[in-house]
């Protein structure tokens, strides 16, 4: 079965790209290809010369927090560094910084089951940030959270992106989420998955954006485009 067809996408350093589309349009596959978790049957994935990613250059956040249930929050965040054989002493400041960044200072020793869904996702994001990745790939990370938690995490992610200046590719099936977060919204349609077209966001990124007419207009625009693409 062909999951993706004729997909061409150019992602610049510092971009925040949302890949938007219904279930089964291949957006997760696209993300896994970028991460190198799957290999394309044909086609090419190219990096800027001299910038081919090494382990740790790419952070990945899944829909579930996918934490080690037996390890504390700090140990979970330590994992990527541990796999790169970073000594514990050297890694601990990085681990604390990452946990601090996602607002989990003081929860270092907590086990995943002691944390709420939103906090588990924060640990997962800290784990992705701990290697200081240049590219952050996120696969519907907030889809399982309640709306209030989701809004808060979206706002925090946006300010993290502004602080860290890393590139984010964010897969979602929520038009509101894509409109609020992304600088570029890539619309995908299913069977086979392909890119229909792309929209640039005119929004000033920030928590207030959600209340602006520009945001409402963008949501309406994306909704309209999506309906038209899916009907075609």
């Amino acid at each position: 079965m062909e999951a993706l067809h004729d997909v061409s996408l150019d992602i610049g350093a510092g971009d925040f790209v949302a890949i938007l589309g219904p279930s089964g349009c291949g957006k997760s596959t696209l993300l896994r290809l970028i991460a190198g978790l799957d290999q394309p049957d044909s086609g090419l994935l190219a990096w800027d010369p001299g910038h081919a990613p090494k382990p740790g250059d790419i952070g990945f956040v899944f829909q579930d927090a996918t934490l080690l249930p037996w390890a504390s929050a700090a140990d979970n965040v330590f994992l990527p560094l541990r796999l790169r054989r970073t000594p514990l002493k050297q890694a601990m400041p990085e681990v604390h910084t990452a946990l601090h960044r996602v607002g989990l200072k003081g929860f270092e020793a907590a086990r995943p089951r002691q944390l709420s869904g939103g906090m588990r996702m924060r640990v997962s994001i800290a784990r992705a940030l701990v290697t200081r990745p240049r590219l952050l790939l996120m696969d519907e990370p907030f889809a399982a959270l309640d709306e209030f938690t989701r809004h808060k995490l979206q706002e925090d992610l946006l300010s993290l992106w502004q602080d860290l200046r890393c590139t984010v590719v964010f897969v979602t099936h929520s038009i509101y989420e894509a409109a609020f977060l992304a600088r570029r919204i890539v619309l995908m349609t299913p069977r086979p998955g392909r890119i229909d077209h792309e929209l640039a966001s005119p929004l000033q990124p920030g928590p207030e954006a959600r209340l602006t007419p520009a945001y409402a207009a963008l949501v309406a625009q994306v909704t309209h485009d999506m309906q038209r693409s899916l009907a075609a």
Binding site: R32, A35, G36, L37, P55, G56, I58, F60, F62, D64, T66, L68, L79, P80, R82, L83, R84, T131
Partner: peptide, 23 residues
């Protein structure tokens, strides 16, 4: 262990021994 966790180990260059031992 969930497939995503195995993917994560792969992403960070965790070898078979590390995956066995830590996951």
């Amino acid at each position: 262990a969930p497939a995503e966790l195995a993917d994560l180990f792969r992403l960070y260059g965790g070898g078979r021994i590390a995956t066995l031992w830590l996951l």
